[in-house]
């Protein structure tokens, strides 16, 4: 018996559009507007997550270049909007040639590039990956402050908090158990944005039950023995990789619980779009508490 696979895309988008009209409106209305004249005018982002945060908040013309990944619909939820921007590959020399007055980077990526750019006298602001809804909201506000778009940021942040509160429903009895599983058998930690998304969708993360707060590798045998109510197969990309072949193992389909598929773009970055992931996961609750 094949477990129900939750398709990406239109169904989920429709549900999102129906359930959260304000979110979509907030995303799209944020673009135009007047920029603070004191705010940076030549902003370059060299990280997929800062790309998307900046896209959501920047005034027209404020953002100069994004990473190639931001334009890739497999990696980015804002690929269509990113298409009109120039791209960079996160290398110091091409970023320098853009003559940026602000560079946005991830905290753990490209540290050599960041060091070099700072050495050249360029202002670089780094964003740590959001590990919780609170950090996600804080990073929206911080990006707004950096770009001189505080009002828009506050509006989006408030809307996100309202929509999140609306999505969270108490579950009857003990919540079902959900496990994430990715390439090499990696299981995201419970003390992470992924863990909060799973919890918000009305599940208990298996990672919390077995003490994987920070995430770690879960052998296939151990996952099968844990027999969770939902296995969330987390894929990077449809291109084949042996590391991800384990996600197709027949033992997973022999489990009694359901299986859902998430792509990295759905939840690796702390963006309001993670509410879509919450909504889709909640649809897999065996108690049907969502509808």
């Amino acid at each position: 018996m094949r477990p129900r696979q939750i398709p990406l895309g239109r169904g989920a988008c429709r549900r999102l559009a129906r359930g959260l009209p304000g979110l979509a409106a907030a995303l799209w209305l944020a673009g135009p507007g007047l920029a603070d004249p004191a705010a940076p005018q030549r902003v370059v982002s060299i990280n997929l997550c800062t790309d998307q945060l900046a896209l959501m908040l920047a005034a027209p013309g404020q953002l100069r270049a994004l990473t190639r990944l931001a334009q890739d619909p497999e990696s980015s939820v804002m690929a269509a909007r990113a298409r009109s921007y120039r791209i960079n590959h996160g290398r110091a020399e091409e970023v320098y040639l853009e003559k940026p007055d602000l560079v946005l980077a991830g905290r753990y990526t490209a540290s050599a590039t960041v060091t070099m750019l700072r050495g050249l006298g360029i202002r670089v602001e780094t964003f740590a990956p959001a590990e919780s809804f609170a950090e996600l909201r804080a990073s929206i506000l911080r990006m707004g402050a950096l770009l001189g778009r505080e009002a828009e940021a506050a509006r989006i942040e408030r809307r996100f908090a309202e929509n999140l509160a609306r999505l969270q429903r108490p579950s009857r009895g003990a919540p079902p158990v959900a496990a994430t599983w990715a390439a090499h058998g990696y299981m995201a930690g419970s003390a992470s944005l992924t863990g909060e998304i799973i919890t918000a969708a009305g599940f208990r993360p298996l990672a919390r039950l077995i003490g994987h707060g920070a995430g770690g590798f879960m052998p296939l045998e151990a996952l099968v023995m844990a027999d969770p109510d939902l296995v969330i197969l987390s894929r990077a990309d449809p291109a084949p990789a042996h590391s991800e072949a384990v996600l197709d193992h027949p033992a997973l389909t022999a489990l009694t619980g359901r299986a859902a598929v998430m792509q990295d773009r759905d939840w690796i970055c702390g963006l309001p779009a993670v509410l879509d992931a919450v909504d889709r996961l909640a649809a897999n609750r065996p108690d049907g508490a969502r509808e």
């Binding site: 990309d237 291109a239 990789a241 590391s243």
Partner: peptide, 10 residues
């Protein structure tokens, strides 16, 4: 050359 970030680990 693969676009999949895990391919290089393969």
């Amino acid at each position: 050359l693969s676009p999949n970030p895990f391919a290089a680990q393969d």
